[in-house]
């Protein structure tokens, strides 16, 4: 039930933001007409999602709260900036000093959502791409950081575990 509520709140909020019809009082009739149309489209989308049986903890991850945006996301942006600068140096160096390797790390998050967050964060930092995922092993294609990838992935793994704990 809480997932349905959070999904409908998110849908109504994004409809309001993208249409820009904020004011409640308006002299024109068509303003209310458009508001009703938005409400109907939100209801239709929720009905579709319920019919597809995708209203669960993955489509509306309310159990994570706001912590992904307050703690995890700033740290991830910092790591993305650092590894971007490294990859840019490699690209611009006159001789491409590549040390391409495939490494395998173990993913410790228990839920599927946590693993998806971990794999996506690994891919989002340039220089490491998660290629394949079987059970709890993630195969990573690494460009050339001389062993720094394992540390980074391990750090990410710990932070994602902390994120999904005490839900």
């Amino acid at each position: 039930m809480k997932y349905t509520i959070s999904l409908s709140l998110a849908m109504a909020g994004s409809w309001l933001i993208w249409s820009g019809h904020f004011q409640i009082w308006d002299d024109h009739f068509h303003h209310y007409f458009i508001l009703v149309l938005g409400l109907l489209s939100c209801l239709f989308c929720i009905w579709l999602a319920a019919r597809m049986k995708i209203v669960d903890d993955e489509s509306a991850p309310v159990q994570l709260g706001l912590r992904p945006f307050t703690t995890y996301f700033p740290w991830l942006m910092k790591e993305i900036v650092i590894s971007n600068i490294k990859v840019a140096k490699i690209i611009l160096s006159p001789r491409l000093k590549l040390q391409r390797r495939m490494i395998t790390v173990t993913a410790h998050p228990k839920t599927e959502l946590g693993r998806v967050i971990l794999a996506n964060s690994i891919t989002a930092t340039p220089g490491t791409i998660s290629v394949q995922m079987e059970d709890d092993k993630i195969q990573i294609h690494a460009l050339s950081f001389e062993g720094a990838e394992e540390e980074l992935s391990g750090d990410m793994d710990r932070r994602v575990c902390k994120l999904e704990k005490n839900q």
Binding site: I80, L98, R100, T123, T125, H141
Partner: peptide, 16 residues
């Protein structure tokens, strides 16, 4: 030089 390393370069433009 090859496809898998080109993907890292695509990541640079897509993120930063």
């Amino acid at each position: 030089p090859e496809f898998f390393s080109r993907m890292h370069a695509g990541g640079v433009t897509d993120t930063l």
